[in-house]
Design a protein around this nucleic acid. Structure first.
Length: 724
DNA sequence: CGGTCGGCAGTTTTT
DNA sequence: CTGCCGACCG
């Protein structure tokens, strides 16, 4: 292959990053600077120019999507398959290692992965057996405690137990939870990483093998690595290994879940002679947008230092809309999107970004009112839905009867005459004898420790699972899934549910069968039982839906966190208020405030052409009206980049007594009411003016009545009175 | 065993 | 104001 294909399309900094001979390379890649491109071409360069075997390359990402994309793009660039290359998330690579070396890692061969919901349930269960007060030790907090320690590489027994009562109890739960996991062959997400790390420590020969094998390690989104991931990498790379890490300290937004932005600085110290390359040329946004982003992020301290620039045009000023309240804000966004659509902007070119999910609702209503199609990202993923997880837990229990988490989840779903009394009996016995729930059930039945009715029900359950698991080696995966949902009564169970809910759940269960079919065809030439194991891993590790949502041109709505890595021609960044963004909880701690600022930087740099910022002076949140001042992030943008928008009546401030002094657009000056004004209606009572539409005879006004809610009224008929 | 009611919490999310 | 979870009751 011609090397020029790999280098020619790149700028100088990118070329350097792709072709450097340095043993250690740190690429500081600004937003929109072609980061993925560099990573892909770097690997291409290593394989083609350096003649490295794909077998000797390990590339690590944070999401399955990124891993998938990387492999696809490398193969497209080189026009060949790179099968032997390991490309995956930290978790999937750790998982792969543990599957291959389960014995060395001290795990049973059929270990299963717990997602965070499973983990929380198991923690609750553990706490119940320990008789811990859930008021004093909230399970969520315990979960956080456990995961945090694991992320820092700390086992319960290694933690100093010379501490306060509160922590001491958490440690006890941590330990008991671990014991439960070990006995049931269960591994949570943090455990995958920790075990993989301990594998290096406990098995130097294994470490050496992989260190030798992976001559070059590449890491994407390096600023998001946590302590254990960093330690794992450091071991693997060792003194000899070559490594390329790519990241952007200004886009580190996951500190709250353990990511250590300091790892970037640490890298420079730990890996001597690191070649640092900055990618600062941006190919995404207008100069105006970049200047705003640069200005905001400049308020942070201890940056690695980077300034985005572009050869492109300066573009439109940033629009800033000050809304009276959140409804007005949403209305503005919707009306702008409608106007943009009329100028031939596709809906999918537009994104609405917000700090927290709770904000989406009002926006959604406004889009609905305008008849604009939208899609909200986030929310429950397919494999996380309750009915899907139930079905999967049957498969898990069939696969490994010791899986207590699965046992607990489905033993009474659908209901089959096994009540809390019976279960309590089983749990106690299991705890006493250090047995799995499954074996405990068997023995309790045998010992006649239950009423005849309960014993019969429990026996029937065990037999049903055994009956199903005998078919694992005989039937195809999809048939097996189908058998579970119909024979075990899940379908019938949801059929009985009233309302839309049951129907949707049944749809989902059928979707699960299709997913299994799809999986069969993708991963063929495997034994049936193997296939089941792989499928279970897949559902735990790749919660992404198999089929992307049906093609529809719609407005994209998501949180700022979700938007990372994406780009849109038009971006609305809403809710820029002190207390909301930066969030209340982050305002007083400098470190957390800086992370909020980086989040803002991420949001702004998503925009390619047009950026709209909005905030509401009053916002109803948690049923309470609160007044807010504009976000400091707005004020950190140079004034000359911003153009303030005033809609309709041109009154952005609802202070009634000030309306006269506010500038009025001549065309709208005749409007008898202003936005935010309080009015009285004969039938609907008092309310607040939210918006106008039309003029003259047809002029309509939208009023949010205190009691009757929001209504559109024709001004001519409405006989509204000002309350002032 | 399933339904209902009351209390309470309530950034951000991937694996 | 929601939505979720747990307790309680029929």
């Amino acid at each position: 292959m011609d090397m020029s294909e790999i280098l020619d399309s790149l700028n100088d900094a990118q070329k350097t990053a792709v072709s450097t001979q340095a043993q250690r390379t740190l690429v500081l890649a600004g937003a929109g600077s072609g980061k993925t491109r560099v990573l892909v071409h770097r690997i291409g360069w290593l394989l083609e120019a350096q003649g490295l075997s794909p077998y000797r390359v390990l590339a690590v990402t944070f999401t399955n999507k990124a891993a998938q994309e990387m492999r696809t793009r490398i193969e497209a660039l080189l026009n060949r398959s790179v099968q032997g290359m390991w490309v995956g998330t930290f978790h999937s690579i750790a998982h792969r290692l543990l599957r291959m070396h389960w014995e060395a890692a001290g795990l049973p061969e059929q270990f299963q992965i717990l997602d965070s919901e499973d983990q929380l349930r198991l923690i609750k269960r553990t706490m119940q057996t320990l008789q811990v007060d859930e008021e004093r030790w909230p399970p969520k907090q315990v979960q956080w405690f456990i995961n945090n320690h694991k992320d820092e590489g700390r086992r319960a027994e290694k933690i100093d137990n010379n501490t306060d009562q509160q922590t001491l109890m958490m440690l006890r739960i941590y330990q008991a939870y671990e014991d439960n996991c070990q006995r049931a062959g269960l591994v949570d997400f943090a455990e995958l990483l920790l075990r993989a790390y301990e594998l290096w420590l406990k098995q130097p020969d294994l470490l050496e093998h992989y260190s030798n094998r992976f001559e070059h390690v590449l890491v994407d989104e390096f600023q998001d690595t946590n302590t254990i991931q960093y330690a794992w990498l450091k071991c693997l790379i060792g003194e000899q290994g070559q490594v390329t890490v790519v990241g952007d300290d200004d886009q580190s937004i996951y500190g709250w879940r353990g990511a250590k932005i300091e790892n970037i600085q640490l890298f420079e110290q730990d890996f001597k002679g690191t070649h640092i390359i900055r990618l600062e040329q941006n190919y995404r946004s207008t100069e105006t947008i970049l200047r705003a982003a640069n200005a905001i992020i400049a308020h942070n301290d201890n940056r690695m230092g980077k300034e985005l620039w572009t050869q492109g045009c300066s573009g439109d000023p940033i629009a800033l809309y000050t809304a009276f309240n959140e409804v007005d804000e949403a209305r503005y966004v919707a009306s702008r999107i409608k106007a943009l659509a009329e100028q031939d902007h596709a809906y999918r070119d537009t994104a609405i970004l917000y700090r927290s999910n709770a904000q989406s609702r009002v926006l959604e209503e406004a889009l609905l009112r305008e008849g604009l199609p939208y899609r909200i990202f986030g929310g429950l993923r397919f494999f996380e839905r309750a009915e899907i997880k139930n079905a999967l837990c049957y498969l898990r229990l069939m696969f490994n009867t010791a899986d207590d988490a699965a046992f607990e989840r489905i033993v009474a779903v659908p209901p089959r005459g096994i009540g809390e009394r019976t279960l309590q009996e089983v749990r106690e016995y299991a705890k006493e004898q250090q047995l799995s729930m499954w074996v405990a059930s068997e023995q309790i039945i045998k010992d006649n420790r239950l009423s005849a009715r309960a014993a019969r029900a429990l026996q029937a359950f065990l037999e049903q699972i055994i009956g199903l698991s005998e078919r694992v080696n005989v039937q195809k995966l999809a048939q097996l899934v189908e058998a579970v949902i119909s024979e075990v009564g899940l379908l019938a169970y949801h059929q009985k549910e009233k309302g839309e809910k049951g129907r949707v759940r049944i749809e989902n269960l059928k979707e699960l069968v299709s997913a299994a079919k799809e999986f069969e065809s993708v991963v063929d030439d495997q034994e049936h039982s193997q296939l089941l194991a792989l499928f279970l891993d897949h559902t735990a590790l790749e919660s992404r839906e198999l089929q992307a949502d049906a093609f529809e041109d719609s407005v994209q709505m998501m949180t700022l966190h979700t938007a990372k890595g994406l780009e849109f021609p038009v971006v609305f960044l809403v809710g820029l208020e002190e207390g909301l963004f930066p969030h209340q909880m982050s305002r007083n701690e400098p470190g957390r405030l800086e992370e909020e600022r980086r989040l803002c930087y991420v949001g702004i740099t998503r925009a390619m052409q047009h950026l709209y910022l909005t905030y509401a002076e009053t916002r109803r949140l948690y049923g309470r009206e609160k007044r807010h001042v504009s976000s400091r992030f707005i004020r950190e943008i140079p004034k000359e980049l911003i153009e303030e928008v005033r809609m309709g009546s041109k009154v952005s401030r609802p202070m009634l007594h000030n309306t006269e002094s506010m500038p009025m657009a001549s065309s709208e000056a005749e409007a008898p009411f202003s936005l935010g004004q309080r009015v009285l209606h004969q039938m609907f009572g008092e309310g607040t003016v939210l918006g106008f539409e039309g003029s003259g005879q047809n002029a309509r006004v939208q009023v949010n009545f205190d009691v009757k809610g929001s209504k559109w009224l024709v001004l001519n008929y409405a006989k509204l009175e000002s309350t002032v």
